[in-house]
Write a protein that binds this DNA or RNA. Structure first.
Ligand code: SF4
Ligand code: SF4
Lengths: 137, 137
DNA sequence: AGTAATTACTACTTAAAGGTAGTATTAATT
DNA sequence: AATTAATACTACCTTTAAGTAGTAATTACT
């Protein structure tokens, strides 16, 4: 009942980048050091973020990474989506799968509330919301 | 962001057993067939449920399993606890870990609401609540 | 042109969850 | 006592997530 390591790292990375928006480029070494994420694992994640168009990379000497959009336009849900970690409408609690109003397990209705709240939280929180203000990353 | 396979199976097994309370014993083959869970994996789970005192087992010919307590006294949370899949108070969204009121990430407060709702859901739902009524298991 | 610093790619290793196989133990029936 | 049907135990195999290593490609600076 928690996000994958990869998703957690990705959120923290992007929030950190949003926070440092002033300085144009941030490189992998700086990110890995600041966020205490294994360097090689981080670069792997960064490449996926670049492919997903959330981040721009500049290769070669003096290269680095930069957010591709303004922080307020990148939602946490967009990040989770990349790693198949977002909450879908059909997210199932007991793993039976496709059920409907007539045929459902007894936890389905109870599960709806927190599920929708999680969805909303992820869809409405942008990097601008979760970065800055001296908050922990 | 979902329960482990093992936890999902365990909940469904116990809910099914609560539903069939009338017939004294249910054996592993019946459970595996009814719930479409791999037999050998199911017996592994059953043994853990027995050790955790939620289920009584009777070995030998004509043996099987039986709930150890009445259905209303077994909460979903008790099941999740066995497999370290319950929602703890300290459950962390971003994986940084031990934070507090003064030093926290910006998602912490938003995360509190769904987290508490999940906790409540698991702690308050008993097998009696989720079994029966022709609901899917 | 050469070097250094950077991201990207390919491939591997490790750890954990999920699942399977075989055997031992237990107990009722004959 | 032997057989049969059940759970319990031990050990293994498979799949996926997490993490690591090495090399190629790219670019700025000298
Ligand atoms: S009814 Fe239960 S099993 Fe079916 S989709 Fe909803 S949560 Fe999952
Ligand atoms: S503040 Fe954020 S990182 Fe810290 S425990 Fe809460 S959710 Fe986790």
């Amino acid at each position: 009942m928690n996000l994958s390591n990869t998703s957690q790292y990705a959120i923290r990375i992007l929030a950190y980048m949003a926070d440092k928006q002033d300085s144009t480029l941030i490189n992998a070494t700086m990110l890995a050091d600041a966020l205490i994420i294994p360097y090689k694992f981080l670069t792997k994640i960064m490449t996926e973020l670049v492919k997903a168009n959330l981040v721009v990379s500049i290769r070669g000497r003096d290269g680095g990474y930069q957010l591709k959009k303004v922080a307020s336009e990148i939602k946490v849900d967009d990040i989770l989506y990349i790693f198949n970690d977002n909450i879908s409408d059909k997210q199932c609690l007991l793993g039976i799968g496709v059920c409907n109003k007539l045929c459902k397990c007894s936890m389905h209705d109870q599960w709806m509330k927190p599920k929708l709240q999680l969805q909303k939280m992820f869809q409405e929180s942008s990097l601008a919301d979760i970065a800055g203000e001296g908050s922990k990353i």
